[in-house]
Simulated scan of single mutants.
Amino acid sequence: MANHTPNPDNNYDPAGSTQMFRAFVDERPATAEVQRAESRSRTGLVIGVVVALVVIIGVVALALK
């Protein structure tokens, strides 16, 4: 007679899903820190683009006078 269970008795880990959940929960703060760092770099990029546009508009305004 064949054994048709999805997990054979010798490979069953009842704590497997708990361990995976804990690993997921433990990784979340690191992910949040990375997102904050990426957000800061984007903010710096936006400020740099705005400053560059102001300088270009100033140069064009001086050239047209």
Rank of each mutant, 00 (worst) to 15 (best):
M1C: 05
M1R: 12
A2H: 07
A2W: 05
N3C: 05
H4E: 09
H4Q: 10
T5G: 02
N7R: 12
N7G: 01
P8L: 14
P8Q: 11
P8F: 10
D9S: 13
D9M: 10
D9V: 12
D9Q: 12
N10P: 00
N10K: 09
N10S: 12
N11S: 12
N11T: 14
Y12T: 06
Y12I: 06
D13L: 08
D13E: 12
D13P: 00
D13H: 11
P14Q: 02
A15E: 14
G16N: 07
S17A: 15
S17G: 11
T18R: 12
T18A: 14
M20W: 04
M20V: 05
R22N: 14
R22M: 12
R22L: 13
A23H: 06
F24P: 00
F24A: 08
F24V: 02
F24K: 06
F24L: 06
V25L: 11
V25W: 04
V25S: 06
D26Y: 03
D26H: 07
E27H: 07
R28V: 15
R28Q: 15
R28P: 00
R28E: 13
P29F: 07
A30V: 13
T31L: 15
A32D: 10
V34E: 15
V34Q: 15
R36K: 15
R36G: 02
R36W: 05
A37D: 07
E38H: 02
S39G: 13
S39N: 08
R40M: 04
S41C: 02
S41G: 00
R42N: 10
T43L: 08
L45M: 06
V46E: 03
V46C: 03
V46L: 07
I47A: 05
G48N: 02
G48F: 01
V49S: 03
V50M: 10
V50I: 15
V51T: 04
V51Y: 00
L53W: 03
L53P: 00
L53E: 02
V54R: 01
V54C: 05
V55R: 04
V55Q: 04
I56F: 11
I57R: 05
G58A: 14
G58K: 03
V59M: 10
V60M: 09
A61G: 07
A61D: 01
L62Q: 08
L62N: 11
L62D: 02
L62H: 06
K65E: 03
